[in-house]
Design a protein around this nucleic acid. Structure first.
Lengths: 354, 354
DNA sequence: AAGGCGTACTGTATCGATACAGAAGCGCTG
DNA sequence: CAGCGCTTCTGTATCGATACAGTACGCCTT
């Protein structure tokens, strides 16, 4: 039989409450008694209050849940996501809090079940499509939620840390049009719910379901519209997932078609690196024959000389943690928009003469 | 007031147990009643059984704890660690289980507190020095433990997934001595408990406290002994941490000393990449002027043409998860040794004539 | 009609702690 | 020495569920 608080209390002939205080509120008893209690506990092999019981009674969990729409393992494949998580972890550490990574890749019922089972004090949501079934499960829990992405359209007061996605790609788009590019392809994941890499026709980009993809494409749309390139003239290719391979395959669809686009704009660096791979495979020179832009400025982007939009991923993670664990009193400070910056490197250059 | 099981039961005039069964054991009641219960719950805004209460009563937590000795954020910086976690996450996902990342960077008491607060069904331990204070806290919890590293010296029956570290570096060391190298420097983190980058003298490598460093260095020692190079002749440099920068700095200590070593063997790829940086900074050619070996075979290793020892990190993670969540009945199968492979690339070559 | 059996549901004990109100002890004041 | 306030400890109610034994009842045997 595992020892409990009661076991220790009985061994010393004192009250259970006092033993509890020895662990949780050292100021409530004399140091001598506390030391005696801890010593006795050690001898009995009692390892401290049962976390589940403590959590039930106190209402605190000592962990925050991190919910990802994709397979949980995705969290570890994208350097941007890794960087974000690192920031979040840094804050969590400050507050002696654990990070519970929650997989929600399954169907609705299973996803909700996992969310409902999580012993946490709050949720950080991240890369969730607007319609994801786990979202309503998360809301139903009634715990604090911080979006690491966007203002909650249903609840404008909800906390979030984000960037102005559309403004970022607007600037990048202007860079490209300024270089004379007019024949342009856009590559993104989650344009369509299906996981297929293929050209798609998007009637109205405002209606795209996944926030990040939608906003970034809208920024590019607006930049191109400024120079008279209408949305229907822009080729869009869906990538099955956010991976280098999918990016390369998607780029293939754009490149192996005449006339070839002079610029390919991807919504993430991972996809853009795939585009560079596709160029290389075809003997095309980035920034000369075809210009390429990514998003995130992951470390590999600099090494590959990829023009991209930098966003402060680590800071985003840190602030997300702060909003969750120690939110500022002023509600206005609970909504944070971080700056982005266009990083021009060798992968963009003047549009080639045709 | 948040609704509870009782609220729902009262609303329907049925027993609390039945409502509980509707969620946890659907086979115990008729589908019609179950549907009515779930519907009522929905209307009352009841989001399912409270996880802490459920966990307390049932004894199950639906999460496994992952404990790191270093700052929690370290988990996300080393590609090897990331790969391992990915594998672990894949298995966790199969069992609808979350992954609780536990920071144990603090002093003993704080580290133990965090471990004792974790609502988990088991622990995966990983990169913990043998003496780490959280270790005994983890053991005291009495939950299943899987080491992602090594056989537990105190309990040979304990589950683990590991590799034969010493055999791996023995093979790598023979590769180096076969190329004629005799003047050799070893670079490792955790040779000494202090976080300082500097040359150190290790009287007896068998006594090094950190398992991985110890075993890998012992393999190299044995390989060198085979060609008559004794331990005292080998230069050892401690790296303050497992980072590229520390690797470069450590390599500096070895390189800026006459006579210069012809081979530098590092215990991780991250450190070895730093060594390559240091060579570059000095105009030295890897594999010609100085040979370099790493360990892990992270993706960057191939890109940098680094000779290294590959270990199946993803598989290690997956199997660790399986041992924790669904251990094989046969105890012998609970101890797994995975294969490693020497990957010879351009960073090693014949020892230069002097 | 008595007996047996399976299904569907109920009721109570219990998981292991914390919250909170209250009691005891003790030194100090006037 | 009564009265007060402080510190230290006690005792009971409670957190929200699950386990498990037990009841009720319909249906089939014999």
């Amino acid at each position: 039989m595992k020892p409990t608080l009661q076991t220790v209390a009985d061994a010393l002939g004192i009250s259970r409450s006092t033993v509890s205080n020895a662990y949780s509120r050292p100021d409530q008893l004399s140091p001598q008694l506390r030391e005696r209690i801890l010593e006795t506990a050690r001898q009995l092999g009692y390892s401290g209050p049962n976390p589940a019981a403590r959590s039930l009674r106190s209402g605190r969990a000592g962990a925050i849940g991190v919910v990802f729409s994709d397979a949980l393992s995705y969290a570890f494949t994208d350097p941007y996501a890794v960087q974000f998580l690192r920031g979040l972890a840094q804050t969590a550490e400050l507050y002696d809090t654990g990070l519970l990574l929650i997989p929600v890749s399954k169907d609705g019922e299973a996803a909700a079940a996992v969310v409902n089972n999580a012993v946490v004090d709050g949720f950080c949501i991240y890369c969730l499509t607007d319609w994801h079934p786990s979202l309503q499960a998360i809301r139903a829990r009634g715990l604090p939620i911080v979006s690491a992405e966007r203002r909650d359209p249903d609840n404008p007061d909800a906390r979030y840390v984000g960037i102005d996605e559309a403004a970022a790609t607007l600037a990048a788009g202007r860079h490209v049009t300024g270089l004379g590019h007019r024949r342009i392809a856009l590559i993104a994941d989650w344009i369509i719910p299906e996981r297929e890499t293929r050209p798609v026709t998007v009637a109205d980009p405002e209606k795209l379901p996944y926030y990040v993809t939608r906003e970034r494409l809208l920024g590019y749309r607006d930049a191109l519209a400024e120079v008279g390139v209408g949305w229907p003239q822009i080729q869009t290719v869906n990538a099955a997932q956010n991976s280098r391979e999918a990016g390369a395959e998607a780029a293939g669809h754009a490149l192996d078609r005449a006339p070839r686009p002079t610029a390919i704009l991807a919504v993430t660096d991972i996809l853009a690196l795939g585009v560079l791979d596709a160029l290389k495979a075809r003997g095309l020179r980035p920034g000369k024959d075809v210009s390429v832009i990514g998003f995130d400025d992951i470390p590999e982007a600099a090494a590959s000389r990829l023009t991209t939009i930098a966003q402060p991923a680590l800071e985003k993670g840190r602030l997300t943690g702060t909003l969750l664990l120690d939110p500022p009193a002023d509600p206005a400070e609970r909504r944070i928009l971080l700056p982005t910056r266009l990083r021009v490197r060798a992968s963009t250059g003047p549009a080639p003469d045709q």
